[in-house]
């Protein structure tokens, strides 16, 4: 049961990361134009977030060893994601408007601005979601003998969630929902994951 909940947690975490990546690229497009650099930035920034999330997630797992700790990350991240439609447009506007008007923006900034915008909006929530996988590996691996199977299952579930996130965002969500609705739903999902962590914390505590 606890294992199933942990697998569901990383699956949904992987799902949310890719919803933020795909829908985020669409969101950034209107401010930064040309799809190509926006996509380059968005993919790069999300990978940076994943890398940092894995690193810190693993260390924090060793240190705190309780699923409860993750709610301290997931609640702010969920609230942040919920608020993206409210704060991001002004933030991006400030970023775009800082260049002197009536002079062409240099090619370098045309490339780097979307990365900055993407980092300001998407680095934090994707970082938090990435901490889930190493954290769950630590909680689920009862002894050294099953670390391989546990980490394999966690990687697989998280990646399967990401695959679902990519296709559902691009093929379905964009056609039927507004971007702000999708961001708010992803924020809600992240808060739901925080709740799942609390439940998992109690379930694992009972077990020991």
């Amino acid at each position: 049961m606890q294992t199933a909940a942990a697998i569901l947690l990383v699956f949904l975490g992987g799902f949310a990361v890719m919803v933020l990546e795909i829908i985020g690229a669409r969101f950034l497009l209107k401010d930064f134009g040309g799809a190509f650099y926006v996509w380059t930035s968005q993919i790069g920034v999300v990978l940076v977030a994943l890398s940092l999330g894995y690193w810190f997630g693993g260390r924090w797992a060793d240190r705190f060893q309780r699923a409860r700790f993750l709610t301290w990350l997931l609640v702010p991240s969920g609230l942040f994601t919920l608020a993206i439609p409210d704060f991001a447009p002004r933030l991006i506007d400030a970023l775009v408007s800082r260049h002197p008007a009536d002079a062409d923006i240099s090619l370098l900034w045309q490339k780097l601005d979307p990365a900055l915008g993407s980092a300001l909006v998407f680095l934090f929530p994707c970082f938090v979601l990435a901490t889930l996988s190493p954290y769950m590996i630590r909680l689920l691996a009862a002894q050294l003998g099953n670390v391989g199977a546990v980490s394999g299952a966690v990687y697989a579930a998280s990646t399967a969630g990401s695959v679902a996130g990519v296709f559902i965002s691009g093929y379905v969500l964009l056609d039927h929902l507004g971007l702000s609705t999708i961001f708010r739903a992803t924020g809600g999902l992240t808060l739901g994951l925080a709740g799942l962590c609390l439940w998992l914390d109690r379930a694992l505590a009972r077990k020991t």
């Binding site: 209107k30 401010d31 930064f32 134009g33 040309g34 799809a35 775009v96 408007s97 260049h99 008007a101 009536d102 062409d104 923006i105 090619l107 045309q110």
Partner: peptide, 26 residues
Amino acid sequence: IHTMDGRVYLRRTQKKYDAILMDAYS
């Protein structure tokens, strides 16, 4: 000729135009 996105250009320019002709496709 300005090498940039049409919307980014319009957002930043101070100029007023008598006509805007839209022909941007991917």
